[in-house]
Amino acid sequence: MNQPLASGGAERAATVAPPADFLDGFISEEEYAARRGVSLRTCQRDRQLRQSPPFVVIGRRVYYRIEAVRDWLLAREQEASRKPSAPRAGRGR
């Protein structure tokens, strides 16, 4: 029943890539806060108020998919308006 491996089998086994980490493409909440330049508490508050990018909870840790964060930021991108939103003080009186 036991048959020896063909010569090509050993070569194929050597070229198989190791399994990728399942968290590839994700960043931790701490790294997300550091990249945003805000405190961890700010990120937690934004998440509670549903003002954060989509996230995944694994155990007690929160992770953000990098592409989801980029999409979330692009969706909130605003173009600067040329007209001020409020009149300047001391003008037009």
Rank of each mutant, 00 (worst) to 15 (best):
E77V: 02
L74C: 04
T15K: 13
I58G: 07
R70L: 07
P18H: 03
R36H: 09
R88A: 12
I58W: 07
V57W: 03
R41Q: 15
R88W: 08
V38T: 14
M1A: 04
L5H: 08
C43H: 05
V62P: 05
I27W: 04
I27N: 01
R82W: 05
R45W: 09
V56D: 05
L23H: 11
E30Q: 13
A17F: 09
E79M: 01
K83I: 14
A68V: 00
A89C: 02
R60N: 14
R61G: 02
F55S: 14
S81D: 01
R70V: 08
G90E: 08
L5K: 09
Y63N: 04
N2R: 03
V56R: 12
I27Q: 11
R61H: 11
Q48V: 13
M1C: 06
E29A: 11
R41A: 14
A89G: 05
R50G: 14
A13K: 05
P54A: 15
E29K: 12
A17H: 10
G8Y: 12
G25E: 05
E67I: 02
L74N: 14
R36L: 14
W72P: 00
E79A: 06
R88I: 01
A17L: 14
N2P: 03
V16W: 09
R36I: 02
E67D: 08
L40G: 12
S28P: 06
D21H: 15
F55E: 09
Y63I: 04
Q3C: 01
G37A: 03
R93Q: 08
P87F: 06
A20K: 13
R76G: 15
A80W: 02
R91H: 10
F55L: 13
L40Q: 13
P4G: 03
S52L: 02
M1Q: 10
E29I: 12
Y63L: 04
Q78L: 09
Q44T: 13
E30F: 07
R91D: 13
Q51C: 12
P54L: 11
R12S: 05
T15W: 09
E67W: 02
E67G: 00
T15N: 04
V62D: 09
P18V: 01
N2H: 08
Q51S: 14
A75T: 15
R60W: 04
E77M: 03
L5V: 07
Y64M: 07
R93T: 03
M1E: 03
F55C: 10
V38E: 10
V16Q: 05
G8F: 09
D46I: 00
S7W: 04
P54Q: 15
E11G: 12
K83D: 02
I66K: 15
Q48D: 14
Q48I: 10
E11A: 02
A75S: 15
R65D: 01
R35F: 01
R41E: 13
S39K: 11
R61A: 11
R93F: 00
S7R: 10
D24N: 09
S39I: 01
A10G: 12
I58D: 10
L49R: 15
L49K: 15
R93G: 04
E67F: 03
E67N: 06
T42P: 00
A6Q: 11
E29C: 12
P19I: 00
G9F: 01
P53G: 01
A75P: 01
V57I: 15
R50A: 15
A17V: 06
P19H: 02
R91F: 10
L73P: 00
